[in-house]
């Protein structure tokens, strides 16, 4: 497992939003992760738990209200967490690490042809590039990724959702970033378009156009099919990380367990079962509880859970989870329902 070169390493990264009222929202709280070359990491979790914030934070490009607090982000061994924003923008974004924001495909300027946008992207990094060069470069990439070159001359409204999303992905890998972070790139797409997007990601990795992929989504079946590892977040923290198979079929943390239990697969009889739901709401990130953050909603909660700080436990092959119970205790509890 741990043979490949580590491309992205994050140590105890903490970032917060400072709201207009001066309060701090700790949306990424002591997050550590490692992604190896050629591997992909999926991030799932409760909506509002800080996935998008983590994605933003990973780029080392902070602007208010998001602020960096502590921790290190190493890309290929180079720490970018302390760099000044201008350097990050010029040297890191797009080249080392590229980010596709949530709902990015709707952010394409509707009055501009796709190629205009690409020109802007390239000229930030390569000031002297001529329009012809850029066009050729973009065309080559688009053809390699199976997108017709005619897309370049179209306006975003003329493209279907799936096409738009693939265009956005293609644009984001123009500069061959080492890490690509895609924040819910598939949630607005139909299954067929999703499939094409996933195929595109695979191809990007195989062709070496990107070093590794971080993929955020709520579509667990999709995540299972795309990524090597899955990380589950809850209230700003990582609660579990495992390889895709283990994460989906053998989750350890009670939240992951609940999450995986609510996967909907269209098959006979589904209509009559009631989907498992976890009652309650996640804690306020302004002043998270000192004990386990999931305690309030956990079926297996003990008084101890609410007071002790729960650390990530590492069990075999880099699999981690955050719970005071041991692996066996948890499995047993799940077995008894």
């Amino acid at each position: 497992m741990d043979m490949g070169k580590t491309i992205l390493e994050v140590n105890e990264l903490t970032t917060r939003y400072i709201t207009r009222f001066g309060e701090s929202v700790y949306a990424v709280d002591h997050v550590s992760l490692k992604v190896e070359e050629g591997k992909s990491l999926g991030i799932a979790g409760e909506s509002g738990c800080g996935k998008s914030t983590l994605a933003l934070s990973l780029m080392g490009y902070y602007f208010p209200p998001l602020h960096y607090m502590s921790g290190a982000i190493l890309i290929d061994g180079r720490n970018i967490s302390g760099m000044n924003p201008d350097d990050v923008r010029k040297l890191i974004l797009g080249k080392e690490i590229a980010y596709i924001p949530q709902a990015a495909m709707n952010a394409l300027n509707p009055t501009q042809k796709v190629i205009r946008f690409i020109e802007d992207v390239i000229q930030v990094h390569d000031y002297g590039a001529t329009k012809r060069d850029i066009y050729e470069r973009a065309r080559a990439l688009f053809e390699k990724l199976g997108l017709p070159a005619s897309v370049l001359e179209k306006y975003p409204v003329e493209l279907s959702g799936g096409m738009k999303q693939r265009t956005v992905i293609a644009i984001s890998v123009l500069l061959s970033p080492k890490v690509l972070i895609a924040d819910e790139p598939s949630s607005a797409l139909d299954v067929t378009s999703q499939k094409m997007v996933i195929k595109m990601f695979r191809q990007l990795m195989n062709d070496g156009l990107i070093g590794s992929l971080i993929f955020i989504t709520h579509e667990l079946p999709l995540l299972y099919n795309v990524t090597d590892d899955i990380m589950v977040m809850y209230a700003g923290q990582i609660v579990e990380r495992a390889n895709a198979k283990a994460a989906v079929f053998d989750p350890l943390h009670p939240y992951s367990k609940g999450l995986m239990g609510s996967i909907i697969v269209p098959e006979e009889g589904l209509r009559n079962v009631k989907l498992a739901a976890i009652p309650g709401v996640p804690p306020n990130l302004k002043n998270p509880p000192s004990g386990c953050r999931f305690a309030e909603r956990c079926k297996y909660v003990t008084p101890e859970c609410r007071v002790t700080t729960v650390n990530l436990r590492e069990i075999e092959d880099g699999r981690t989870y955050r719970c005071i119970f041991s692996e066996n205790e948890l499995r047993e509890a799940y077995q008894n329902g």
Partner: peptide, 17 residues
């Protein structure tokens, strides 16, 4: 129109109910 596309599976179940 795609009302739950950005909601996690768990909350989705609650909301649909």
């Amino acid at each position: 129109d795609e009302p739950t596309s950005m909601i996690d599976a768990c909350s989705r179940a609650t909301i649909l109910d």
